[in-house]
Design a protein around this nucleic acid. Structure first.
Lengths: 239, 239
DNA sequence: GAAGCATAAAATTTATAAATCATTTGCAGG
DNA sequence: CCTGCAAATGATTTATAAATTTTATGCTTC
């Protein structure tokens, strides 16, 4: 048995997915499952991903597995070493800093472009996205943190809506990728990071700045939002 | 035999690679070959990539082929349709515009950051990269255009060096990806685009601006460089 | 007789399994 | 500490099976 991870029982792995996959291909199904386990930290950074183990754990052949792993490699969640198989992409403080910095740069750029191209329809979309997010609890349990998948989904949609008006699909894709990789860091130190601040207020302030057409303030708030998230995680001694 | 593409002879495909592959894995070798054929336009935009045909043409099994195709899909050179296989990513004027715009944004950003973090070592690296590029002919044949792989390689290195000092590996990676996708457009209309202008002078002007620490001018020149390249291609009626 | 639709047949992609080849890794012996 | 062997693991091929899309066919209806 692989050290550092108790062999996931197929049924248990299945239970991670909130909704039935119902994806037409095995690869996509596997991709979703692996991605979820990667982001949640169930598959630990640096852990070796042996084909034999994966085939057993996820009950799949190697063709769809390799396919899914390759896609995840392109996203930076998995690392492929020549002739030495795959491993879960390791994490480091320096990478966290670099990803955060890059995300700040790109999202600042994207938000500027979006606000230059602002339309009533986009503003309404943003208001709706924020409204939904604000009405969803961050944690399923008020006492102790318990990840709320709905909140995570709405949070992601909110930030994507913010830059969706920038006019560049590639840029949005790059931002998404950075968001994914940073999401893993959030999850890894979630216990430490919660509930350290009022993210809801920060979101509200950003929306207000956008609606006020105050580009500099909106950009400043958004960057501080990401920077603070990173700072909290960087404080975590377990990283 | 598949219509629209003469069966690439293995030896001929091999000849496309400037250096012997010598890659340890079949996948990487295939990846390089496919990439070269994709960028060169030998594999035509929109063309279907049937496994049977590819296995025959590249003399490989489906495992490494699927692996290579998946990586290329992540880079936007190949498109994967659920249950309908792969096809060469189609091209369009609108995508060309979008890629160019995004590249201008990201490289402008990266160049600013690089110049903020300028060091003598970086400036020297840039001078060397430019020197090498300037001493290499654009075309192997002065009469009629004949692609010079050395020039292409050095050109790529020059532009990468320009932003290499930006401090963000992810950002450099994004720029690389955009460069690849745009390179394909250049190749597709190379006959039309050559020799429409003095790119060497443009490179020289950029280097001068960088060494003068004139950020605004350097960024302006670089963006115009990319925009003009796109404009020339957009004039091509064959696109 | 032509258009539309359901069904059947063919082609293709996707997935599994088994076997082979190549490389890395751990370990023993020098 | 280095060398070389052996076992483990990854990479690749081949063959085959299952699932899905595409194409062809024939029937009904207007």
């Amino acid at each position: 048995m692989a050290p550092g991870l108790s062999q996931p029982d197929p049924a248990e792995v299945q239970s991670l997915r909130m909704n039935a996959p119902a994806s037409s291909t095995r690869t996509l199904d596997l991709y979703d499952k692996l991605r979820e386990d990667l982001l949640s930290g169930r598959l630990k950074p640096g852990q070796k991903l042996q084909m034999r183990f994966l085939m057993e754990a996820y009950q799949a052949g190697q063709t769809p597995l390799r396919e899914a792993l390759n896609r995840l490699t392109a996203e930076g969640l998995v690392e492929a070493r020549e002739q030495r198989g795959f491993l879960v992409a390791p994490v480091s403080r320096s990478e966290l800093r670099e990803l955060t910095m890059t995300r700040c740069w790109l999202e600042a750029l994207a938000l500027r472009k979006a606000m230059e191209a602002a339309t009533p329809a986009w503003e309404e979309e943003l208001v709706v996205a924020h409204h939904r997010l604000s009405r969803t609890p961050r944690s399923l349990n008020p006492e102790q943190f318990e990840d709320n998948p709905d909140w995570e989904r709405l949070h992601r949609i909110f930030h994507r809506t913010l830059i969706s008006q920038c006019g560049s699909a590639p840029l949005i894709g790059f931002c998404d990728q950075l968001a994914d990789r940073l999401y893993r860091y959030r999850r890894l130190s979630i216990r430490h990071a919660f509930p350290s601040r009022k993210v809801a207020d920060e979101h509200q302030a950003i929306v207000t700045a956008v609606l006020d057409r105050d580009v500099e303030r909106a950009v400043e708030l958004l960057m501080r939002h990401y920077q603070q998230t990173a700072d909290v995680i960087l404080e975590d001694p377990s990283l």
